[in-house]
Amino acid sequence: MLFCVVNVKLTKLFEDVIVSETIGIVNTIGVERVKVDKEPKALELKSVLPKLQVQHVSKAFQSNNGGVYVLEDINLEVGEGEFVCIVGPSGCGKTTLLNIVAGLEKADSGDVWVNGSKINGAGTDRVVIFQEAALFPWLNVVKNVEFGLKLKGIGSSKRRNTAIEYLKMVHLTKFQNAHVHELSGGMKQRVAIARALAMNPEMLLMDEPFSSLDAQTRWILHYELQNIWLKTRKTILFVTHNISEAVCLADRVIILSTTPGRIKKEFFVDLPRPRDDNDVNVAEYSTRIMKELKVELDKVVKCEMDADSCVECDIKCTTEVSEKTDIGGGI
């Protein structure tokens, strides 16, 4: 393995935080793995199983603007307690990949393993936080947080306590009896995070959860999410098109290329937490990652400019280019 499993640095930096022994993948700055291991490791050979293994996943899919894209031979491993961000231009299939891991979509080929067992559909071990909070308007805040626990058949007083505990973590206990529509966008996402954490899942899957929020709210939530991660040490797979967001949050940033969607490069981010979006080091990392991504963005732009005559990329572009299409926004 290229990354060591020692975390002297992290423990030094956060002496007040209890860090378990196997987590915290620290690497020297600038080490880049151009390709992840092609060969899937035999499970029994590993002393510590990775939390998540994505093996040879491929899928053809249609994006919102009608173009047909492909995700090709994705191999990915995420360790226990690791925070991994997937970055890529629009149409690279990052959301599709996350949905496949969540079990909401089926891959054309390839498998996803969680804790060494193959997934079969959606499961409570992988809770998704969507771009829209997806809170249920017929339930108030605390009942939304209790939702998953109720489905698990946990008694009402016990699930109320758990829900309050996690609402405390996102600082929203005051709003426990509020209706969903009374909350701001940022508060809704915090409730969604509390709802996901209350399920105590093996991992959190986050699909551009902050992309529809304003800059300040996003900044606050980056800070809060980092603190939550430091407290809970959940394994997180986070999809975004925002590079500085990825650098700010992740242990490891994975860049997906577009057409075909492949893992292009990985960056390890070794900066102390909690990090700030505007920090110089974060900006420096972002610039380097941006350089890698530039090529991919150019592809997307070129394709959109050329509209229906893309020769270089084999995307079946539509003449109408969706206005929403982001080209690595937030940079």
Partner: peptide, 16 residues
């Protein structure tokens, strides 16, 4: 669809 997906990842199935 979003509600359905969210509910499914939280373990809602069948009559529930």
């Amino acid at each position: 669809l979003l509600y359905m997906r969210a509910a499914k990842t939280m373990g809602a199935r069948g009559w529930k």
